[in-house]
Design a binder for these strands. Structure first.
Lengths: 204, 204
DNA sequence: CGACACATGTAACACGTTACATGATTTG
DNA sequence: CAAATCATGTAACGTGTTACATGTGTCG
């Protein structure tokens, strides 16, 4: 719901039309977060439908269609600013899932994958560091968004290092001496929902 | 695309059916990342359609419908593990957008909002720390996912602190002495796409 | 039998992306 | 006028969530 409220915030500064919303959003996030136009139109149309925004429905001639925030929209915006992002179910992260998967898959060198991803993260971090150096020092949007991205990537690097250490300690368990390969399947099956119908009858 | 590939990975260990996929996904992410069933079915249906997975179409009686990975699916999985997550357009983050918005909005105390969010982040971090302490020490999935979340939240705390410092330096610029309030609108307007049609004619 | 849990699936919606279609306005 | 640009919008798809409908098996 970020874009929805970001557009609401832009409109709270005065009436704006579609492409203008996109451009101002991108300008204020240092051109780091692109925003496709289609989404602007559909999102602002939903805001309109929900009464948070109203359109000067083609009052002035020309193709542009300006939207302005409504009192309800202002209240919604203020409430959104106060509310911390939901944290009960943290977002599923691709990199984390990838390492979890790699750690369990036979024939996969997790440590190697971790290092490859680590290198990529460090490279990306330096890209954003360079971006900051080349930026105007008063471009607050760019500086803040670039910082956020650098901190985020740095957290992944730290996590990869800790995961590497953890996996080095635990991996030997997955390669026990002289244990039949079906053992892994059995433990996996015991964790699954009870197999009923055909199969379960034998177990009872 | 994380869930899609995570399901593919689960199926690479052997045939599984819908609810089983969900349960194993949640078990391996320490019950921290819930996965709704509806998505499992639609995702696995798409995997089937794309030939990465095939279904034992009701061979055994009973309601269950098992899927197994295909060779193409195995290749896709291996390629996915190698490829680092796309970083050209980093994900838009709600908290970051919120602070950016708050920093520009008149009548909003950014520092206060930052501190409120900071407190919430620290609380959430300790929730996950407790979760780790109460967990079985061999529950790798939970430990890794909880670590990832803790590192992520910690990065936000660091970012909030740096943003707080940055804004303390820059905020005075937004409150200049004796400057007409329309100045802000002018600069915003100059950054917008050229207003044409009715309005632009006067400017030329 | 009836209640309950297991299992599959669909519908509706929000959000996000890419691509295309359609006008209006400016510019060469 | 023709081409380029600005501006709005729609279509199709993927992903994610919530809710509902339906069927099947177990158990009191």
């Amino acid at each position: 719901m970020s874009v929805r409220h970001a557009l609401l915030a832009l409109l709270s500064e005065g009436p704006k039309y579609g492409l203008q919303l996109r451009q101002e959003f991108e300008a204020r996030t240092g051109e780091i977060w692109p925003l496709n136009v289609g989404q602007v139109y559909t999102t602002v149309a939903r805001l309109d439908r929900d009464g948070l925004v109203a359109s000067d429905d083609g009052e002035e001639p020309g193709p542009q269609k300006a939207y302005r925030i409504t009192p309800e929209g202002g209240e919604e915006l203020a409430a959104w600013l106060r509310t911390p992002p939901a944290a009960e179910a943290p977002p599923r992260d691709e990199l984390v899932i990838k390492i979890l998967v790699a750690a369990r898959l036979p024939g996969v060198d997790v440590a190697q994958i971790i290092q490859a991803h680590r290198r990529h993260l460090v490279e990306t971090m330096s890209r954003f560091t360079r971006l900051k150096q080349d930026a105007a020092e008063d471009d607050l949007g760019l500086l803040l968004v670039a910082d956020a991205e650098i901190f985020r990537l740095e957290a992944f690097v730290r996590w990869l290092d800790s995961a590497d250490a953890r996996l080095r300690h635990h991996t030997p368990v997955a390669v026990p001496p002289a244990v039949p390969s079906t053992a892994a399947n059995h433990t996996a099956a015991s964790a699954a929902p009870a197999r009923r119908g055909t199969g379960a009858r034998a177990a009872r």
